[in-house]
């Protein structure tokens, strides 16, 4: 069907011509089928007909990236500040007092990660049976009562799963999950507290106390015994963006 140049009677040239067509056809086929595959799967290629949407989306991704890298830099700078601060406290003098107060303020605000002795207690939902399933679910007020009890018992820092409880952290049910500050959490809820571990454990183990109240009332919640630990790590309070993407500094 195709007529080839007369010079192509030379078989080496013919072969090269066929090879070039084959390479081009294979690459072209690959490009077309990748695009087709993506369109039929409802992928990003659909937006290639709407470059505005693709461009806005890429800009959003770029801004997101910049934000992420800025937050990482901020976390790095914060770490350096903390190291310098610890150094200043070690050296003593007037600045040590100021730095110590600043550190205490940071701990209270929840902006720094904290490591120390404390207790861990885990609360899991009960097994659903019958119509009154609301009883078997861990509610926000359940978590609040435990957190309150821990703070009353003198905890320096408390966290639920990965969320640090700061002064601004609200604990609230939103539909199927519990919102702790900016983070949405589901069961099991691991509550960690740093402080005098024996006092914290005693407070939680109080007969008729908060944990007994949760275990009772025929709710079937699975509440572990408070576990005293030498070393517990509680993360810093995280801003929303980092908390949602899970790229927080540890």
């Amino acid at each position: 069907m195709k007529q080839w140049p007369r010079t192509a009677s030379n078989s080496a040239l013919r072969r090269r011509v066929v090879a070039s067509w084959t390479i081009v056809a294979a690459v072209f086929g690959l490009m077309v089928s990748v695009q087709y595959h993506d369109v039929t799967l409802g992928g990003a290629a659909i937006w290639s007909a709407l470059p505005d949407v693709a461009s806005v989306s890429s800009r959003l991704a770029a801004v997101d990236n910049v934000n992420q890298s800025l937050m990482k830099r901020e976390a790095g700078i914060m770490r350096r500040v903390l190291v310098l601060q610890a150094d200043a406290i070690r050296r003593g003098g007037v600045t040590a007092l100021v730095e110590r107060q600043l550190h205490a303020a940071r701990v209270l605000a929840g902006t720094v990660a904290l490591t120390g002795p404390g207790v861990v207690v885990t609360i899991s939902d009960g097994h659903m049976s019958g119509p009154d399933m609301a009883r078997f679910i861990t509610h926000d007020w359940d978590l609040r009562s435990v957190v309150n009890e821990l703070f009353v018992a003198g905890a320096d820092a408390v966290s639920i799963n990965s969320a640090r409880i700061s002064a601004q952290t609200g604990v609230y049910c939103i539909g199927p999950v519990v919102r702790v500050g900016t983070v949405r959490l589901g069961p099991p809820f691991v509550i960690r507290a740093i402080g005098d571990s024996s006092v914290l454990a005693a407070a939680l183990n109080l007969p008729g106390g908060v944990l007994d109240a949760l275990r009772g009332a025929n709710r079937g919640l699975d509440v572990t015994r408070p576990e005293q630990k030498r070393r517990i790590r509680i993360p810093a309070y995280e801003p929303a963006l980092l908390a949602q993407t899970g790229e927080a500094q540890q």
Binding site: G43, S48, S57, A61
Partner: peptide
């Protein structure tokens, strides 16, 4: 199964 990132879809087309 190659999924195109949305920002590159327009370039392939």
């Amino acid at each position: 199964n190659i999924r195109l990132p949305i920002q590159y879809a327009a370039y392939l087309s």
